[in-house]
């Protein structure tokens, strides 16, 4: 009885819609009129849809960037956890961007990237660069430009997680390694890293899955443009449904997004699964 309100809410608002998404995906439907059953046609269309593939490619690229950026976050966390004064304050400062809405972040970075009056190009011109690019308007660089606010937004989150894990390593383990003559780099790579591998795996899954469903920031910053150069899976799906009223096809892509997310989660967990958990 106590579980009922919560269970009812997630059943009706999470699980039933997911089921419906699979169902709508088999239909030709504009969201208002009659549905027509068309079997797998939407999925076949998706496979042949070059826009879908390019948006999926952009999502994968973001996932790769995000996973690589974990290395930098991990390095910063290692430094931060090595008896630094003010570490607690610093990690809170790092966390601030994470608290802002994606809309605010997107609007702020639109201004940072503004070709003539933005902060970034002002700095670049002071440094002597003659024609700094208009970051969000160039198809070849827009995705890299968008990744900077993503990096900025999530830094504090991952640093926080790594920092907490590193602080859990008992001092005695590190002291023992020092006595045995290990240098700081060796301690970081051979002792600390293996000890927090469980947490690192979780963050890899979070980074990949988070990137695959990334939406808000890109939708506000570029709307997927210019000319589809920053379209990702979720933004493509959203446009299909709510700009072109292609609810059936949109649902199919939405269901693919769900399937891909779950499959990737399982694959990453299998790939990074270690036979033995480290005890200390």
């Amino acid at each position: 009885m106590y579980v009922l309100p919560a269970l009812l809410l997630i059943a009706v608002l999470i699980y039933i819609p997911l089921g419906l998404s699979a169902y709508y995906g088999l239909m030709d439907w504009d969201g208002i009129g009659d549905m027509k059953f068309i079997g797998m046609e939407n999925y076949i269309n998706a496979i042949q849809d070059s826009k879908f593939w390019s948006s999926a490619g952009h999502s994968v690229l973001l996932a790769i960037f995000s996973t690589l950026s974990l290395i930098a976050y991990l390095a910063i966390s290692m430094v931060l956890a090595s008896k630094i004064k003010g570490a607690d304050l610093l990690r809170k400062i790092y966390l601030v961007p994470m608290l802002l809405s994606s809309v605010a972040i997107a609007q702020l970075w639109i201004k940072v990237f503004n070709p003539s009056n933005g902060m970034l190009n002002y700095i670049l011109m002071k440094l002597g660069m003659e024609n700094p690019p208009s970051w969000l308007a160039e198809p070849s660089i827009v995705l890299y430009a968008i990744f900077i606010p993503i990096l900025w937004q999530y830094a504090g989150f991952y640093i926080l997680i790594y920092y907490a894990a590193l602080k859990n390593i008992p001092d005695s383990v590190i002291e023992a390694a020092k006595i045995d003559g290990a240098n700081p780099i060796q301690i970081a790579l051979k002792i600390k890293l293996p000890l927090i591998m469980g947490v690192v795996k979780v963050t890899i899954v979070l980074a990949i899955v988070g990137s695959l469903k990334y939406f808000d920031l890109i939708y506000v910053m570029t709307g997927g443009g210019p000319n589809g150069a920053s379209e990702v899976m979720a933004s493509y799906m959203y446009k299909l449904a709510f700009s072109t009223n292609n609810f059936g096809y949109g649902s199919a892509i939405g269901f693919l997004l769900l399937a891909i997310t779950l499959v990737v989660t399982i694959i990453v967990q299998k790939l990074t699964a270690s036979k033995e958990e480290i005890q200390y």
Binding site: P17, L212, K213, A234, Y238, A241, G254, L257, L258, T261
Partner: peptide, 9 residues
């Protein structure tokens, strides 16, 4: 669950 998979339904 990615919310986008549920938003159309």
């Amino acid at each position: 669950i990615p919310i986008h998979s549920a938003i159309i339904p």
